[in-house]
């Protein structure tokens, strides 16, 4: 692995790490969501420092270039995140709907009395 690649990858993962920890610290990101992102940063560092592992993985999935392996896993990871968000959004949509219905029902008596 060329040294520029190594430096860039380590640099990128450390930046990601710092940003996530800061977001959690400032309560802009829930811990619940942070672990996935922290894991990404961690795996990136591991793969950079332990190049043989990347080669092994490449061989395991039958890819030719180690970079392909990195891209495949990056895309898989993004799909998982997107799916995770889709599930969350479905749950939230239902909750918002049920809440609004509840509010409408609770508020109905008051609203109709305004016109009496």
């Amino acid at each position: 692995m060329p040294i520029q690649q190594k430096v860039f990858a380590i640099f990128a993962s450390i930046i990601i790490f710092i940003v996530i920890i800061n977001l959690v610290k400032n309560k802009k990101l829930k811990e619940e969501y942070s672990w996935l992102w922290l894991l990404t940063g961690f795996v990136m560092i591991i793969l950079v420092l332990w190049y043989d592992l990347l080669l092994m993985l490449t061989h395991l999935i039958g890819a030719v270039q180690p970079t392909t392996t990195v891209f495949i896993f990056a895309i898989l990871f993004l799909i998982c995140i997107a799916l995770h968000f889709a599930i969350k959004i479905s749950i939230l949509t239902d909750q918002v709907k049920n809440l609004s219905q509840k509010i409408s029902l609770l508020d109905a008596e008051r609203y109709n009395n305004l016109f009496l």
């Binding site: 709907k97 609004s100 219905q101 509010i103 409408s104 029902l105 508020d107 109905a108 609203y111 109709n112």
Partner: peptide, 18 residues
Amino acid sequence: AFVIRHPFNMGYGVALQT
């Protein structure tokens, strides 16, 4: 009529369910 008002538009099905 008695009116139940949704705070925002949520669609025909949601109105039915309310």
